[in-house]
Design a binder for these strands. Structure first.
Lengths: 223, 223
DNA sequence: GTCTATACAGTGATAGAC
DNA sequence: GTCTATCACTGTATAGAC
């Protein structure tokens, strides 16, 4: 109450990274660690060494912060998917189902954990959002991934010309489930196997996942 | 401020259902509709027409309320699973893989939506919890389902004697993903197919799911 | 034991001074 | 752009009525 004229100590700019970037960085880490509603804006502002109100200033709201986080991370993943899919078609006119599945899953699982794609924090965060019922989550995900998902459904259908479209779609849905549950790393299968199976090992998970899914996709359609 | 001596109107007991039951009922519905942190205790107390503090009195905390909700609903599902599994082995010594998968999935999906098992609200709530990182959620789920899940892994392994144990476990994990994602009814595949595919139609989902999963389980193990 | 009223520390959000 | 101060609201705790 008395210091009045002192304000903040540093005469030059204190931190190298801009405020906005620092907030995004900290928020991504804390959200993934403790969940969207397990961490408060005050914790973020303290950790990022910014004022509480500056979060609202830069992102409008807590939801807005989440949205901005996603907008930044999701697009490169969707683009990488399409890039890999295009690469499949460059090699051969009718790529194998396994190659298509790999192009879809690898950016989400394996590349997802690389720092430039957001790291493990973002992978988990995305999985969490995928099962959330909030309209906001759905809109964010739809905006980021609808286009690429549609292209992959088409590609899978083209690779399996005898499978009815509806069956392709059902199986794509089941694949999303396996992918998100692996990304969520819920700890369930670790508990059931004394830690022998670890979905957090994304490369191994992908290696087991693709043949399993491919066999499912190739099975006879339900009559 | 003036009515003082009037209090609540009814001379007899106003509601037939006890307070505890009414809280559980309302909480289950609201939690599933808006998520654990999308609904406040005041909304629950108002909807259930009970005093705010009576929730804490009966359940200790909001988390305690969730735990009580689960304790009530999860046990019958796990029991039904084991009952159906036992029925498989009564018919024949080596039941088909499809029958085992049906015994595991049907109580969660199809029976789950019946009122006596909690209805669609609980199905969604359970799926939400399955991808939550909170230690509490994990403990609750583990307590309710670990035993039955282990028995099913054993049963599947017995039905596929040539498949390495680790491979069975990976595939069980992927199955859980498909199951939970169907239960969560995230709206993703509806958006991608203009509503043609609807995971909320649990009977149809199960019909498509079992042959797909069975084919995956039967495919050659990853070397 | 069961229920109520009320208070409290924490949340996300915001208005307005600098 | 950044800050302080404050708002309405959250889950929780408790003192006491019946």
């Amino acid at each position: 109450m008395v210091k009045a004229r002192v304000k903040n100590a540093p005469s030059r700019k204190a931190a190298a990274a801009p405020v906005r970037e620092r907030i995004l960085e900290v928020a991504e880490r804390l959200f993934a660690e403790h969940g969207m509603s397990g961490v408060g804006l005050r914790a973020i502002s303290a950790d990022a060494k910014v004022n509480l109100a500056s979060i609202a200033y830069h992102f409008g709201s807590k939801d807005g912060l989440l949205e901005a986080l996603f907008a930044q991370r999701a697009a490169p993943i969707a683009e990488e998917r399409l890039r890999l899919l295009a690469a499949c078609y460059e090699k051969t006119k009718r790529p194998k189902l396994e190659e298509i599945l790999d192009a879809f899953l690898r950016p989400a699982l394996v590349l997802g954990v690389e720092p430039r794609f957001g790291g493990p924090a973002f992978v988990k965060l995305r999985a969490r959002l995928a099962t959330e019922p909030e309209a906001l989550s759905r809109k964010i995900l739809a905006k980021a991934f609808d286009l690429s998902s549609r292209k992959f459904i088409d590609a899978i259908a083209a690779a399996l010309p005898d499978l009815p479209r509806a069956e392709v779609e059902w199986r794509f849905h089941f694949m999303l489930g396996a992918m998100f549950y692996t990304m969520a790393d819920s700890g369930r299968i670790q508990a059931l196997t004394k830690g022998r199976i670890d979905p957090g090992d994304v490369r191994r998970a992908l290696r087991h996942m693709i043949p399993y899914l491919a066999a499912g996709f190739r099975s006879a359609p339900v009559t």
